[in-house]
């Protein structure tokens, strides 16, 4: 009898999926807190309508982070919605892992077509600026330099916001 041929089921990259889920949670909580405490981020998202839904997800059915604008700030909503006003999709879990770990910046990943955007590009630009500010709150400057085009200065006021986001924002969503 000859060799048998048949379908091969794809595997699952559990570790990278888990990392993406954790980073999405941290990022979601950080955004929630930053839209309360950081005036620059608050100002950026002020143009979004109430109920605006932003989703960052991994294609085809990977983890996702849903943010919804409620009472003037972004609220982390876990994986509540499938679709939104602005949907940023990583083409695969490897692309997401590179950006979320963080080895590659969002602008570079977008330029390399590792991500796609559905929705108004103007809103995507607003989100990119918010993300740049937020990364400054999450990572030390030497990492930020790799992720963003220009690292913003961190005056004392910003240092305090960074402290609040990291100490109470991410753990407690405040």
């Amino acid at each position: 009898m000859g060799k048998k041929y048949g379908p091969i089921k794809s595997g699952v990259k559990w570790f990278k999926i888990l990392v993406a889920k954790i980073v999405f949670f941290v990022l979601g909580r950080a955004f929630q807190s930053a839209t309360k405490h950081d005036p620059d981020i608050k100002k950026e998202i002020s143009v979004w309508r109430e109920g605006f839904v932003l989703i960052m997800r991994v294609l085809p059915n990977g983890p996702r982070m849903v943010l919804e604008k409620l009472n003037g700030r972004l609220k982390y909503r876990g994986a509540k919605y499938d679709d939104g006003d602005l949907v940023i999709s990583f083409k695969n879990i490897e692309c997401a892992f590179l950006v979320l770990t963080p080895q590659v910046g969002a602008a570079q990943a977008f330029a390399e077509r590792r991500m796609t955007v559905k929705g108004d590009l103007g809103n995507a630009m607003i989100f990119t600026r918010c993300l740049t500010i937020l990364l400054g709150h999450l990572y030390p400057q030497f990492i930020c330099r790799r992720l963003v085009k220009r690292v913003a200065p961190m005056p004392l006021k910003k240092q305090m916001i960074k402290l609040v986001i990291n100490v109470v924002g991410i753990p407690f969503g405040l």
Partner: peptide
């Protein structure tokens, strides 16, 4: 201009 999508691909902020 700062909300134009092409700015993503600009090398400098």
């Amino acid at each position: 201009a700062i909300n134009d999508g092409t700015l993503s691909f600009n090398p400098e902020e």
